[in-house]
Structure formats: structure tokens, C-alpha cells
């Protein structure tokens, strides 16, 4: 197992400052929760319901293009920020993207150990579990165990690389193209790509 922690000196300061609007939203949440008008879990559920349907479609488009267009896949390997931007998905905070490709030998898993840096532009909002301290710590210590809890059992000889996201560099996992998906259009292929598979917490589904 390989860990890639070469960016561990990165600056996470941005996560410990709230803009006026971020703080205003937190303030409203606090008021409403204290008055019993708001259940924070209900808010998470609404956000999750939208974001699982919307944001990850962008990433699925990137993956499907990479599966069908070798030149795009090559570009994605060399300069993911530019390749992804060419499809219209540019990060708003100027962060760089790196695409990490699953292969028969290596499975990639993305985490942010220090906070919850996440590739918003291609995956939308992070799932609740991604932000949870349990995932953030255990993904590094015991990635194979974490994957098993997600229902992903990998061959014992398959390497797992864990990528620690930073404020400046976000990772997108390009899952392996499922067997039996030959001849599908890019749009149909994109439907096989789940959000979790682009974090590395799942594998891309087989066509049904």
C-alpha cells in the first residue's frame, strides 16, 4: 500500500475562516435549531438528495469521455485541470485537479484528512460520510477495511493508493471501465459512474 502525503504541508487556513455569507447561513441554522424549527439531519438529507443527482453528473461525463476517447484520457492524465475545464467544469476557487486512474493493479481512494476538501466542480457537495472524522482518519490507516465497509472487496494483491486532498489540489478517481460496457454511448456509460466510484469508495457499475 502506498500513501501519497507529499502535500502535507499544505495550507488549510481557508477552512478555518467563514466568509460573511457562510457565517450568516450558520447563524440562521443556529437560530432555527435552537427554536426547534430545524433538524440539521433534515437539511443534510435535502442537500444530499440534490447533490447526488446533480453534481456528480459532471464527473461522470468526464469519466465517460475518458473511457471513450483515448486522447482525452491522455490529456486528463497530463493536465486534468485543463481537460476538465474543456468540458465546462472549472473550479471556482482556482484549485487544481488531478485525475487518478484505477487499473487492474491499483485502486485509488480520495480523502481529506484535515478537513473536507473535495472536487466541487465535478462532484458537487461531499457526502456526509466524507466529512466525518471516522472516514478521514481510517481511510489512511485502514483503506482496505473502509472499502470493505462500502461493500468493495479488492483482490489481496491489488494496491490501494490513498490521496490526501488539499485546498489547492483535488483528486478525481477515474474508475475502471466495467466489463461488458462495450458499444455503449458516452451518455450511457456516464450512467454507470456513481459519485462514490469517483471518490474510490465504490467501483463503476456493470450495465444492466
Amino acid at each position: 500500500m502506498t500513501h501519497d502525503h507529499d502535500d502535507h504541508d499544505h495550507d488549510h487556513d481557508h477552512d478555518n475562516r467563514y466568509t460573511d455569507m457562510q457565517a450568516r447561513v450558520k447563524a440562521l441554522e443556529t437560530v432555527l435549531t435552537e427554536k426547534g424549527l430545524l433538524d440539521p439531519a433534515a437539511i443534510d438529507a435535502i442537500v444530499e438528495a440534490y447533490e447526488t443527482r446533480i453534481g456528480p453528473r459532471n464527473g461522470a461525463h468526464v469519466v465517460a469521455r475518458a473511457w471513450t476517447d483515448p486522447a482525452f484520457a491522455d490529456w486528463l492524465k497530463r493536465d486534468a485541470t485543463a481537460a476538465i475545464a474543456s468540458l465546462g467544469y472549472a473550479g471556482r476557487q482556482g484549485e487544481h485537479m488531478r485525475a487518478v486512474f484505477n487499473t487492474p493493479d491499483t485502486h485509488n481512494l480520495v480523502v481529506c484528512t484535515l478537513c473536507s476538501c473535495y472536487p466541487w466542480s465535478v462532484l458537487g457537495l461531499p457526502p456526509v460520510w466524507y466529512k466525518a472524522p471516522a472516514y478521514r482518519s481510517r481511510a489512511v490507516i485502514d483503506p482496505r477495511g473502509v472499502l470493505a465497509e462500502f461493500g468493495v472487496t479488492l483482490p489481496a494483491d491489488k494496491k490501494i493508493r490513498v490521496w490526501d486532498s488539499t485546498a489547492e489540489l483535488r483528486y478525481l478517481v477515474i474508475p475502471e471501465r466495467p466489463p461488458g460496457a462495450n458499444g455503449l454511448s458516452e451518455a450511457d456509460l456516464a450512467k454507470l459512474v456513481s459519485r462514490d466510484s469517483m471518490i474510490g469508495a465504490s467501483i463503476a457499475g456493470a450495465p444492466t
Binding site: L28, L32, L37, L38, V47, E51, I54, L125
Partner: peptide, 19 residues
């Protein structure tokens, strides 16, 4: 579907829906 440029946008949207 609505699109949220930043996380707090989605939280504000969700609060409104909920209330």
C-alpha cells in the same frame, strides 16, 4: 434542477425548502 456554486448555497436552499 438547482445548481449550487458553493456549499452554503445548498444549505440556504435546503433550509428554505425545509421551513
Amino acid at each position: 434542477d438547482p445548481v449550487f456554486p458553493e456549499p452554503w448555497n445548498a444549505e440556504a436552499f435546503a433550509m428554505t425548502v425545509h421551513l
